[in-house]
Write a protein that binds this DNA or RNA. Structure first.
Lengths: 178, 178
DNA sequence: CCGCTGAATTCAATCACTGAACTCTTTGCT
DNA sequence: AGCAAAGAGTTCAGTGATTGAATTCAGCGG
C-alpha cells in the first residue's frame, strides 16, 4: 500500500517483503530498533528524517506486526516502539546487508561497528553465525561495539549513546545525557 | 546519488548499502539476476517496470560494480547484465529477505519457490546454509525449484521459463519459447 | 499562567516514478 | 531495394512521494 502499486512478480516472496520493508528509511528504522532506539524523538534525532515520513513508517511497521507500541508513561500518554518477534527475525537480513556494505563500501580505517557473539567475543560472519561456536546467534546474544572506523564524536546524542558497547535490543538509557 | 540526498547516519554501513541497493526495483533486479535473467527485455517482461527505471537501475548497478555488461552479439551490439563477484555476495541478504517474506507473508498453500543445496537436496535455512551438510552454500550450488504455492501458469515467458528446476546464476535459455 | 516536551499533522516545493510514445540500429522477409 | 520487427534504449507529461519548515495539541513543571 505505501508505494502506489504492488510490485508485479508477486509470486516472489522477496517482492512482498520489499513492499513492506523496502521503502526509503524503513530498514534504517528497523536497524535502529535493533540498536535499542525505541522513541519517536530518538529515531528523529538519529536518522534526521522528516517527521511525516517517520510517522508514516512507524505506522505501517506497526500495522504489519514488525513493531509494536508499548506505553511507557500514562499521564501524557507516550508509547515506545519495540520490535516484535516477527521484526526480530529480520536480523539475519539486516545483518547480511550491513556486512555487505562494510565489505564493499567500508572506510579504509576498518569497520564502523562490530557485532560479536556475547560471551565468546567472536565477530559474526555474514550469515550471522559465530565462527567459533558454529551456531547461529539471535540478536539477543549479539554485542555491538564501535569498530576502528567509527566516528568518535558524532553530533547527535543518540549516536553518542550508541558509542559504548551494548547488547542488541537493549533499550537506550533515558534520558540521553552527553 | 540515485536518491537525492545521502542517508544521514552514514556511519552505518547499512545506510550506504541501501543508498545503492535500497531503491524501488533494485533488489528485484538483483534477484532476477540470481535467477538467471540477463537481458534487458527479460527483466522488462518479468518485472513489468517502466523502461526508464530499468535503464537507470541497470546503469547504477553497473557503475557500482554489482552488475557488469557482457557483449553477447556484435552486429547489433547487445549486452547482457551479469552479476559480478560483489553482486553475487548479495545472495545471503537477498535470500534472508525472501525467506522472511515466505515465513510471514507466504501463501497458505506453501512456499512459492524452494532453494535447495544441489547434490544433497536439503532446503536452505534463513542464513543460507544447508542444515544437513552444515555448510554455507554459495549461489552457484543452489538449486531453485517451484514450491507448492507457485503459480502454475504465469502470464509472461520469463516466469514460465523459471518454472522448471534450475541452478542459480544459470542463464535463461534463449530464445524463450513456451 | 507561561513555556516546554514529545508526538505528531499540514503544506508548498521538489524529486522520483509511471506509462506511453518515440528513436535508432540491424536483421529477416519479400 | 523496401518494409516490418526486435532489442535497447530515451523523452516527456502526469502523478505520487519525499522534504523541510511551520503549526498543532496535550499535559507538565514552576
Amino acid at each position: 500500500m505505501p508505494l502506489g502499486k504492488d510490485y508485479a512478480a508477486q509470486s516472489c516472496s522477496l517482492a512482498r517483503t520489499l513492499e513492506l520493508v523496502g521503502e526509503r528509511w524503513t530498514l534504517l528504522i528497523v536497524r535502529d530498533a535493533f540498536y535499542g532506539v525505541r522513541r519517536y524523538n530518538d529515531f528523529l534525532v538519529h536518522l534526521a528524517l522528516p517527521r511525516a515520513v517517520l510517522s508514516a513508517r512507524l505506522r505501517t511497521l506497526t500495522e504489519n506486526g514488525v513493531l509494536e507500541t508499548v506505553r511507557y508513561q500514562a499521564s501524557p500518554p507516550r508509547d515506545e516502539y519495540q520490535l516484535t518477534a516477527k521484526g526480530r527475525e529480520l536480523w539475519p537480513a539486516v545483518h547480511a546487508l550491513a556486512v555487505w556494505g562494510e565489505q564493499h563500501h567500508g572506510s579504509e580505517k576498518g569497520s564502523r561497528r562490530d557485532f560479536l557473539h556475547a560471551g565468546c567475543g567472536t565477530r559474526l560472519d555474514q550469515a550471522g553465525r559465530c565462527p567459533a561456536c558454529e551456531t547461529g546467534v539471535p540478536p539477543e546474544d549479539v554485542e555491538m561495539r564501535p569498530g576502528p572506523g567509527a566516528d568518535r564524536a558524532p553530533a547527535d546524542a543518540v549516536s553518542r549513546a550508541l558509542l559504548r558497547p551494548r547488547m542488541l535490543l537493549e533499550p537506550l538509557p533515558q534520558p540521553l545525557n552527553a
